[in-house]
């Protein structure tokens, strides 16, 4: 409506048409980037997909791309296990933190605590990785060598994604209409009953979005995981076994990969992008459900 107004009322001089065309050009260039990324991922992975097919990546017993073995399953498991573990730890802590900030914290403490979480969100992943490597790995090594393990990865990653969950949950809890809470309080419900029965169900979609964002961040995270997980290609038997994730695999091998090996790394990039696309679709679906509520 407003754009319609702008279009029909404002004048269109010669210069205006030039500016409009220029900005349209910028916009097309921005849109083309996504197409370019997909195009180049496909183009670089085409040789291997054409020759051995995508199924080999899930069926081959091991990852030796230089001698024709392309089993990416251990890495996929690595990515999924690290993600699952960190999300399982960070979700309750993040949501509890948000509930604390919104409903339980003394009024002076809430903004301070929120500020602290924002700071935590601003620390770059390579710094988390450094800290994990220098501080956490020796700690875990004392329990069971080698120290660089699934457990350390989960630990560091949980710290990294916690702010995402907490900040999104905090924002969506803040959007719960005050009338709902007042109504519940007027009915004599205890504070926890209000939180559990009114606030959480109302903010459900927001909480889910936060968790999905955190999962996306965990799957896509490279540096921290690369530095603390040990990077051994295997399906781990215990929390203390080293693992290698899909992202770490790309970062490690890209430097020297040639031909088919390089191509295979681009396929793992495609698999990663596919996982993210699934998450984005779920996110859309969650938010659509919200609209019909």
């Amino acid at each position: 409506m407003t754009t319609l107004l702008k279009r029909s009322i404002l004048s269109r001089s010669y210069g205006d048409r030039f500016v409009a065309a220029l900005f349209q050009g910028f916009a097309i260039a921005s849109g083309a980037i996504v197409l370019l990324i997909i195009l180049f991922l496909l183009r670089e992975s085409y040789p291997i997909l054409h020759r051995v097919g995508v199924l080999r990546f899930f069926r081959d017993p091991s990852w030796h791309p230089t001698s024709g073995e392309f089993g990416a399953m251990p890495m996929l498991w690595g990515s999924l296990l690290v993600t699952l573990g960190s999300v399982l730890i960070a979700t309750p802590l993040g949501i509890l933190s948000a509930i604390f900030c919104q409903y339980y914290a003394p009024p002076r403490l809430a903004p301070l605590y929120r500020r602290l979480i924002e700071l935590l969100a601003g620390i770059p992943s390579v710094v988390y990785g450094l800290w994990g490597l220098v501080v956490l790995v020796p700690l875990v090594r004392r329990i069971q060598p080698p120290g660089t393990s699934l457990l350390t990865g989960i630990w560091v990653l949980a710290l990294m994604i916690l702010p995402t969950i907490m900040l999104v949950a905090d924002a969506s809890l803040a959007n719960v209409p005050a009338a709902y809470l007042r109504g519940a309080a007027a009915l004599g419900l205890s504070r926890w009953a209000i939180v559990r029965g009114v606030a959480i169900p109302t903010a459900q979609a927001g909480l889910m979005t936060g968790i999905l964002l955190a999962i996306g961040r965990a799957i896509g995270e490279t540096m921290a995981v690369l530095m603390v997980c040990g990077n051994v290609v295997q399906v781990p038997d215990s929390l203390f076994d080293p693992v290698r994730t899909l992202t770490a695999n790309i970062a490690l091998e890209m430097a020297y990969a040639m031909n088919e090996h390089r191509s295979a790394l681009f396929v793992s990039g495609l698999i990663l992008t596919g996982l993210i696309a699934i998450l984005v679709t779920i996110g859309e679906w969650v938010n659509r459900g919200q609209m019909y509520d």
């Binding site: 990324i37 970062a251 890209m254 990039g269 993210i276």
Partner: peptide, 9 residues
């Protein structure tokens, strides 16, 4: 949403 390592690729 694209992971940074994919931007690197």
């Amino acid at each position: 949403g694209v992971p940074s390592i994919v931007f690197g690729l």
